[in-house]
């Protein structure tokens, strides 16, 4: 700042240059803009780097992989890694199973969150504040503390090794990070003017009809946010799922965890050099694991962004 000023002699010119470079009211100036974009692009690159790494390396053949000159652009695009990873992950059956587990849990979680959030937002009953605080406090209880007694309970009730061990807690408001979803719905339902519901009640509708016909359709943004977040969190969950599902249900991230072992079973090592497990195959497996999420994200991305803008993600 000091330097630009000292170079320019005339005060008027100086002010003009200063305004262009550093900006005045309502703009950041050229320098400010360059700085902002540099930061954004730099941080954006850091965010995207692992994804680019996965993408590039998954398409390298053994030669490219071993060649230190080939870093970012493979000499030719090579898809065999995907074929192998596809087999190792047992892809289509695993994907179906993952979708089954994830969608069931997510739908249960979103529906129960909307009911609970509505109850907290619209009614006054004894102990409401106490329960509300309790609900937020449960968000702090780590899964590690709850999973041991729940594991024993589920074992007794025969809920283990089935999707029920995710479905039941989600239905009863105790699913993954569910306090957050209840809060999102709570916040949204409080934003809806009461007069709308009262008008319907005068016309003789009961509370559940009002909820289903009037409030729910207005809560679309909360549904979008909750659905997407709930889905990705259930999808990416491996700690609880490997405990509750054992070896009966395998989701894609769980399969990725045991990728090395599965690979050895399918392609016993030593036979052919090109058949040995290498980084490229593992990266192909990683990409296949996240690909469905990426596709869904890019489809709903705009919708999700608009929903977040209209509801926000936390209350005050």
């Amino acid at each position: 700042m000091e330097r630009t000023e000292s170079k320019v002699k005339s005060p008027e010119k100086m002010a003009k240059v200063k305004r262009i470079l550093l900006g005045g009211r309502g703009s950041y100036g050229v320098l400010g803009n360059i700085f902002i974009y540099m930061l954004l692009i730099g941080i954006g690159f850091v965010y995207l780097y692992p994804l680019l790494y996965i993408l590039v390396n998954s398409m390298k053949d053994l030669e490219d992989l071993l060649n230190p000159m080939v870093k970012w652009i493979p000499t030719h695009i090579y898809f065999s890694n995907y074929e192998k990873a596809f087999k190792v992950l047992n892809y289509m059956p695993t994907l179906t199973q993952t979708l089954y587990v994830v969608l069931l849990s997510t739908i249960a979680q979103v529906i129960s969150s909307s009911l609970i959030g509505y109850g907290f937002a619209r009614y006054n009953f004894k102990g409401k504040n106490f329960f509300f605080i309790l609900m937020i406090v449960t968000f702090l209880i780590p899964q590690q503390t709850l999973m041991i007694p729940r594991f024993l309970m589920f074992q007794k009730l025969g809920l283990l090794n089935s999707v029920l061990s995710f479905f039941v807690p989600a239905t009863f408001g105790q699913g993954l990070n569910q306090a957050l979803f209840i809060l999102i719905f709570y916040q949204l339902f409080r934003m809806i003017p009461k007069s709308l519901e009262e008008a319907a009640k005068i016309d003789g509708a009961n509370d559940f009809t009002v909820f289903a016909r009037i409030s729910l359709p207005l809560a679309t943004p909360a549904f979008v946010i909750s659905f997407v977040l709930s889905m990705v969190w259930y999808w990416n969950e491996t700690y609880l799922s490997s405990l509750y599902f054992g070896n009966v249900i395998k989701t894609l991230p769980m399969q990725l965890q045991s990728f090395v072992d599965s690979y050895r079973l399918l392609f016993p090592s030593g036979a052919v050099v090109t058949d040995r497990l290498n980084e490229s195959v593992r990266m192909a497996g990683t990409l296949l694991t996240i690909a469905p999420l990426l596709i869904i994200y890019f489809i709903v991305e705009r919708w999700l962004r608009e929903s977040i803008d209209s509801v926000g993600i936390t209350g005050e």
């Binding site: 999808w235 990416n236 491996t238 991230p253 965890q257 694991t289 996240i290 999420l293």
Partner: peptide, 9 residues
Amino acid sequence: PVIITSSSV
């Protein structure tokens, strides 16, 4: 990252 971060990845 919110979408794709899982421990296995």
